[in-house]
Amino acid sequence: MRVHKLTFAALAVAASLSLTACNGDDTTAQGDPSSASSESSSSGGSGSGGSDQGDAEQGGGKDSGGQNSGGTDEGNGSNADGQTAKCRTDALNITASDSTISGDPDGTVAVTLENSGEDCALSGFAGVDLKTSEGSLSAERRGEPAERMILKNGKSVSFGINYPMNDSGGSGVKITGLVVTPPGESKSFSLEWPGAGTLPVTDGSGTPVQVGPIGSAGQGS
Rank of each mutant, 00 (worst) to 15 (best):
G169F: 00
I161G: 12
E185P: 09
G103W: 02
M165C: 00
R88D: 08
C120G: 09
S102E: 15
K131L: 14
P200L: 02
R141F: 10
K131M: 12
T100E: 08
G117P: 11
F125W: 13
T95V: 13
V201Y: 00
E114H: 07
T84F: 08
T95D: 10
P182Y: 06
G172Y: 02
I150P: 05
M149F: 03
I175D: 03
K86A: 12
S138P: 13
R141E: 13
G184M: 09
G82I: 01
T181L: 06
G195A: 08
T202K: 02
D203S: 11
P182V: 03
I94T: 00
G204N: 06
S102G: 15
S171R: 00
A96N: 06
S133Q: 04
I161A: 13
T89N: 12
Q83V: 01
W193H: 01
L92E: 06
S116V: 15
R141A: 08
F159T: 02
A139V: 04
G117E: 15
T202Q: 11
M149R: 11
P183C: 03
P200S: 02
S186E: 13
P145C: 01
S186Y: 08
E147L: 01
V179E: 15
L191T: 01
A139Y: 07
N93K: 14
R141D: 11
L137S: 12
L92M: 11
V111G: 09
G143V: 10
A85L: 03
G135T: 02
S190A: 15
G154P: 08
T84M: 03
S123A: 14
N166M: 04
V180H: 08
V111D: 12
D81R: 11
L191Q: 05
F189T: 13
L92W: 04
C120L: 09
E192Q: 15
G184R: 04
V179I: 15
A126I: 03
R88I: 01
D106R: 09
T100C: 10
T108Y: 07
E134L: 09
P164I: 06
G154L: 11
D203Q: 12
V173P: 03
C120P: 11
N153H: 14
T181C: 07
F159E: 03
S158K: 09
A85K: 08
G170S: 03
E144K: 13
E114D: 13
L113N: 08
F125C: 07
K187D: 11
T89C: 09
